[in-house]
Design a protein around this nucleic acid. Structure first.
Lengths: 156, 156
DNA sequence: GTTCCTGCAAATCCTTTGCAAGTTC
DNA sequence: GAACTTGCAAAGGATTTGCAGGAAC
């Protein structure tokens, strides 16, 4: 495990704190570090459990509040999966959307400039000014299809 | 106001009731009728308020439960707008997606076979089996842009 | 010392569920 | 009369908020 991770992001956060006359705290640093180390699309509870391994006294509320700061600082972006918030890195990342496996919950990223272009075209035709979008495709991921096929084969 | 609306849909619902050994009820009929008369993307509360004009004793729970039946019967489809369920007609309707105005909440439908095709292509490349998707584009609708421009002009 | 943070508990919002009373078949 | 429906109230899950005590500047 790397001793230091996301040096740049941490600097961005420190700057955000400074600019907004906020204060640093051990909790915020632990949460940010855990967030940066993860490559998953974390739920609040996922992140809570991770940080509590290091600091069992960190409360869920603080995780919510810190994630809000990370969003505002441009470090995290939030998506909504079946009514539950998920967070992913957003610093210097290209826009993308998500495939979500209905079986195992895996989230696979994709991006398609062609789709974005088509969206823009349709919006222009409707005189609609796009500010954001949410594009999630649900179904079965490769692994779960294989798993289902294997189970099917065994049954016979 | 037309005395009869959605004759075909009502027959579909009656058939659904019959096939599943359920029972008809005045409440269900009032709710279905109100749903069919509306061309909006109704929230549960929207629909509740409409039906309560005719039958003030209908409870929110019954609306929830009836909408669930309508979904199962293929008459309604549900979308999720900022964590709140919205319902629209689904009987004999083509698939489509939505623009949603961040200002006034208006929902504008769109469909794009090209986007669907691109989705399918990407899914095929990932060996992902699509079962459904959610594609919502947020921003400002034509009216709200005009309204904002007018307000801006006045201010000067 | 002032201002900001924290964690808890309580509140909120939307939705679902348990249950006793009422309807439908 | 058996089986299904209803409305209420209570429970549910995710998130937010009020507040008193604690930490940072």
């Amino acid at each position: 495990m790397k001793a230091t991770i996301g040096k740049e992001e941490k600097a961005v956060f420190a700057e955000y704190i400074r600019r907004n006359q906020l204060k640093r705290s051990e909790q915020r640093e632990v949460i940010l570090d855990a967030f940066l180390r993860s490559e998953q699309h974390l739920s609040v509870d996922d992140l809570l459990h991770i940080v509590q391994k290091k600091r069992p006294d960190i409360g869920r509320t603080t995780v919510y509040r810190t994630l809000k700061l990370l969003r505002e600082a441009g470090l995290a972006s939030q998506l909504d999966v079946q009514g539950q918030a998920r967070f992913e890195h957003d610093y210097n990342r290209e826009h993308h959307d998500h495939f979500i496996c209905n079986n195992c919950g895996e989230i696979i990223e994709f991006s398609s400039p062609e789709i974005e272009q088509l969206q823009d075209d349709i919006a222009a035709r409707l005189n609609f000014k796009i500010q954001g979008h949410r594009h999630q495709i649900y179904g079965l991921c490769e692994k779960c299809i294989a798993r289902a096929a294997a189970a099917e084969a065994t049954r016979r």
